[in-house]
Design a protein around this nucleic acid. Structure first.
Lengths: 160, 160
DNA sequence: GAATAATAGTTATATTTTATATCTATTTTT
DNA sequence: AAAAATAGATATAAAATATAACTATTATTC
């Protein structure tokens, strides 16, 4: 078995250095830990869903439209914490790719009602099949009960 | 008492709309909830620490240097999940503002050792006083035990 | 009921954040 | 000694996010 050939005794790899640092203050900082956890989930997401071309944002958009056909862009934007112009850009792409459809509301002709096309419904159905294994991989260090607990605590600190 | 004057019966405010949407799928999606929680913490952070000129990133940088004087930029970058060039830009500002100091390592003259100046130490000490009330505000819906639990679960799914 | 204001959606653009490519100086490897 | 690797830094590109302004429609006000 080959021992790691660290030429100079004092030298430390990035990983070794992390282990030797005093990180206790950051570990007790919820905002920082949330950021790291979120980065981990996003990186994992791109790996898992790359084949389908889904991003975290489009995944959420698809799910909300699927469960709430007719939802307006403004509702979607405020829910997902996206600025409306940035969401519109994404919706334009999703529509021109044939995944969603925009209908003008009859009651208020300014308003737009969003819905999935069959093609969009198929895509998010495929994505949904990857969701469980992906979540399990991300939360692997936690028991089922702990996973539920984490989710519940997160829900509690958020408005809905 | 004035009733909200919604002229047209069918109309819904953004908030009312959120309440009427089916969000159960997203609520069971840890990655999405983590993102929302992180956004909440960041927004709250900017409000709370704006007077000190601290951002989430500079706060973390100060804390790590404070607890680990001599830490190199590369170690800091990998720990905070920042690309080195982006961190360097921040370090340049912090140094030219007199908050941190760069020393060339004697053992390896490529390496840089970071430390706080007295001015920097004072700033993070002031910031530290705001930390507890800020965290309490962000986590207000949770009991003390639940707050500890959330923190522990987050620590468990992360590498260190 | 005509003028005024407000709203939903959209486009264009600016700002900020994040990532990549390249360079110097130094150290390690061969 | 030459070649390769490393730490830091600079310049630049790409991506994400925010602001301003416009159109069409609906609501308000006088």
């Amino acid at each position: 078995m080959m021992s790691p050939k660290t030429a100079r005794p004092g030298a430390k790899s990035a990983q070794a250095l992390e282990k030797s640092l005093d990180l206790r203050a950051l570990q007790r900082t919820p905002g920082f830990m949330l950021r790291l956890a979120q980065l981990k989930f996003f990186e994992g997401f791109y790996e898992e869903f790359a084949a389908l071309g889904l991003t975290p944002a489009t995944y959420a958009i698809f799910v909300v439209i699927r469960d709430n056909p007719g939802v307006p862009p403004s509702g979607l934007a405020s829910l997902l914490r996206l600025r409306l112009p940035n969401l519109i850009k994404i919706l334009n792409e999703l529509e021109s790719s044939g995944f969603i459809k925009r209908n003008r509301s009859k009651a208020d002709r300014r308003a737009v009602e969003l819905m999935l096309t069959p093609k969009g419904a198929k895509l998010i159905a495929e994505g949904a099949r990857l969701t469980e294994p992906y979540n399990q991989k991300m939360l692997a260090p936690l028991s089922e009960a702990e996973q539920r607990s984490l989710l519940e605590l997160l829900n509690r600190i958020l408005p809905f």
